[in-house]
């Protein structure tokens, strides 16, 4: 059978999770199967320099655009599916994948399972494990083929990057699909990381919705100062305007790897974990003992975060002789 691993890029780069999609497809393939990497982007250079683990690369490129909108990506992918008749299409859970996966599912009628962490193949059918309810529940699903799976970034190890020889690359001109597309990309804004760059911070204190209100952020900020740490927030905290966007950690925030990550009132949804689960030392404080943050924490406490902040601040103040 054929497996299509969907990959992405922007400008002349590939997204790192692309190599995870190829590795996931490879891990499911058996003798006689074929892993096809589908790429849509500005040019195929980075893709053909990295996707050697795939049996074939189908690259849809348009030199005029740094980014192929999901609508166009989905249309190009549909054409590829029509020609290749794959049994399985793996789509990353990304901004692009969110629009592509269900679009294809609706137009083909194929089943789709999202937020997939594990896949087991049994001949022509699959058993997959997907996350629900912010990671609090795992759903084991039976999937008949052909099917589409939307895969969580970080669920599969990256394939080793290496070149794919030109004989195994099929190029598609994405320009016509791009020009006739109904969704046009008009601007890309990249923030100024000069203010704060959490990706290089050695210590981070992150507050989640459990902090309750804007005024309480100061308590956590004072603690952060005593620890020599940067203050950060989960998505709802930033959405509420309590912390600036550049201080958001997670899927649509920063991916961080500090020596210390103290999470206060953060539940640990998959989209948050994606940004911080590789920190060296994770300490989580959450009154809910079932909070998924405890699955990645090295130390967990189930006390009230306000009590902890008060007590910890007292001790640190005493320790510093003040």
């Amino acid at each position: 059978m054929k497996l299509i691993a969907c990959t992405e890029g922007h400008s002349s780069k590939i997204e790192a999770f692309s190599l995870e999609m190829i590795a996931a497809a490879r891990s499911l393939s058996q003798a006689g199967d074929k892993v096809v990497a589908f790429f849509a982007g500005r040019d195929a250079q980075a893709a053909s320099a990295s996707f050697g683990v795939a049996d074939q690369l189908i690259a849809a490129c348009a030199a005029t655009s740094d980014l192929i909108p999901a609508e166009t990506y989905a249309r190009l992918l549909r054409d590829v599916i029509a020609v290749e008749s794959p049994s399985l299409v793996l789509v990353p859970y990304s901004a692009n994948g969110l629009d592509v996966a269900a679009d294809i599912a609706a137009r083909t009628g194929w089943p789709l399972i999202s937020y997939v962490n594990e896949i087991k193949r049994d001949g022509e059918s699959l058993t997959v494990v997907a996350q629900m309810y912010g990671g609090k529940i795992l759903a084991e699903c039976a999937v008949g083929l052909p099917a589409i799976l939307m895969i969580n970034p970080g669920a599969f190890p990256e394939a080793t990057p290496g070149p794919i020889d030109t004989a195994r690359v099929r190029m598609i001109d994405a320009e016509p699909a791009l020009t006739s597309g109904k969704v046009k990309m008009v601007a890309i804004e990249v923030p100024d990381y000069a203010d704060v760059d959490l990706t290089t911070a050695e210590r981070i204190v992150c507050v989640g919705r459990g902090i309750g209100d804007e005024a309480s952020i100061d308590l956590a900020r004072n603690l952060a100062t005593m620890l020599g740490a940067e203050i950060a927030g989960s998505r709802p905290v930033v959405d509420n305007g309590w912390l600036p966007k550049l201080r958001q950690v997670g899927k649509s925030g920063q991916k961080v790897k500090p020596k210390l990550y103290l999470a206060l009132g953060v539940s640990g949804a998959p989209e948050h974990l994606e940004g911080m689960s590789h920190a060296d030392l994770i300490i989580a404080v959450n009154t809910d003992p079932k909070a998924p943050i405890f699955n990645v924490a090295h130390y967990g406490a189930t006390c009230d975060l306000f009590d902890l902040v008060a007590n910890l601040s007292d001790r640190l103040r005493a320790g510093s002789g003040r």
Partner: peptide, 18 residues
């Protein structure tokens, strides 16, 4: 054409200390 067979709670804690 896809079905939930079972739901379960993730294995808690991992190697972390409570």
């Amino acid at each position: 054409a896809a079905d939930i067979i079972t739901l379960r709670l993730p294995v808690q804690g991992g190697s972390g200390e409570n």
